[in-house]
Design a protein around this nucleic acid. Structure first.
Lengths: 255, 255
DNA sequence: ATCTGTCCGATTGTCAGACGATTGCCGCAT
DNA sequence: ATGCGGCAATCGTCTGACAATCGGACAGAT
């Protein structure tokens, strides 16, 4: 009953037309024939070119739209876009949440990424990065009594830190992780505000390490910072092997 | 004319109905009300529930389909799916290619990820992982004169190595990187087959490190392996700051 | 009893055509 | 040149329809 015969046939896949439409356009983009910023035709033009109905074209466009390859510029016309990290990373993180990944996995991943990315940041940081980090640090100190604000500033701090690597691949690798880390951190800070001074201290030393390009110091403090993070999680009374929940925004609704 | 008054209004965003449809369903999934495997209703049911036209429902479904949250099972009915790494990672990698990221960025990211992930693999590897790695190693030795085959086996080796971490977050973080690494590696191996013995040697030591759970050794050989990789790239005569190209499959067409 | 061929309802993929709401642009008045 | 009104283009949505396909039921053949 289940495949015992000699000749095997390939699976026949009748691709619907809307997929073909999407694929066609996608191909042109990936091949570089259509470059970011280039306008895709209007829907009616596509209708004429592909010889299918507008509904079909539209469904195809939805596919591309979601993958970020095309977007409407100035709210009307479609054009080729460069998929932006955040939207994609958001979707990846969602996948993780649905798979009920554990805090343990998240922690070990952060740990694995820590030293390498702080090294990169130390090597590649610019003065502007330092400025931004300093500003963030200052504001964090100001707001140290507001756990909610600190959580947000912490998230921004790490975003800036990652940005200082000026490595887009690394950034992309970290983004989905960060999206999961953020809400967890917020929770930890809210539950244990007494950790805030340590957090600020760590941030301070990290900025210092970047300023003086001191790898040793950078690694040391990143490590401490992560340990504190884990400790905070444990203090908040949760199990390392419990699934991370995440408040994941939609990824569509930003400016 | 532009916001000067006391009362601030929130930006009014007239989201198209098809987005709202997608969002609604997505919300139910992310909230756990709809679990993977659950059937989404038929289109007509959704039409009745949402009170919009079928075309609109369909456009919404396309969005979800692309993000991987729903899929057609048995080629017909739609049901909730768990987005799988590969499709998402493929899209992310595409984004990177379109942004013309450089080999340098890719290399430094691999370097940053290396030690942490080998540590994880050493800690979490199972006997099955070792078996699979051994088998891969054996086949690589067999095929050592076929550069193309070695490239493929190398890709599999690293996939197995990553899998041995049993850390889904780490896996997800690495996947988009790996997708970019793979074609580059294939190119390097093809251009410089004399590096194959070193590659095999490194793989052997890495498996060894996993077997004996020897972190020191693991880190050492991962580092060498990566250096060789970079060296191979330079020998092939390309500039570290040239953009990586990638042969990126479609991400839709797998079984 | 198992297999094959056929039929039917349900559902999807695709199409034709239409309408209101925005948006961009162009010409006109200032 | 600048600002404004008006027009055409385009999008979002809807109505209604039809063919192809799938799932399953049912009857006939081996």
């Amino acid at each position: 009953m289940i495949q015992g015969v000699a000749t095997r046939f390939e699976r026949i896949k009748a691709r619907p037309a809307y997929e073909l439409v999407a694929e066609e356009i996608e191909g042109k983009i990936l091949a570089g024939i259509l470059r970011p910023g280039d306008p895709i035709g209007t829907e009616s033009e596509l209708v004429k070119q592909f010889g299918v109905n507008r509904s079909t074209v539209r469904e195809g466009i939805r596919l591309l739209e979601q993958s970020g390859l095309v977007a409407r510029e100035s709210s009307r016309r479609l054009s080729v876009a460069v998929p932006h990290y955040h939207g994609l990373a958001t979707r990846m993180s969602r996948a993780l949440v649905l798979q009920q990944v554990t805090f343990r996995e998240l922690f070990h991943t952060s740990r694995a990424l820590g030293p390498g990315s702080i090294d990169q940041a130390i090597d590649n940081r610019t003065d502007e990065d330092l400025e931004a980090l300093d500003a963030n640090l200052a504001r964090t100190r100001e707001m140290r009594h507001d756990a909610r604000a600190v959580a947000e500033l912490d998230a921004e701090f790490h975003r800036l830190l990652d940005g200082a690597t000026h490595n887009r691949v690394l950034l992309l690798a970290k983004e989905p992780v960060n999206i999961l880390v953020r809400p967890t951190t917020a929770h930890i800070i809210a539950n244990n505000p007494s950790g805030i001074p340590r957090l600020i201290e760590a941030h301070g030393h990290l900025v210092d390490a970047l300023r003086t390009r001191d790898r040793e110091k950078g690694r040391l403090w990143i490590d401490r910072h992560l340990r504190d993070w884990k400790a905070g999680f444990e203090i908040s009374g949760r199990d390392l092997d419990s699934a991370v929940e995440a408040i994941i925004g939609d990824g569509r609704g930003e400016a």
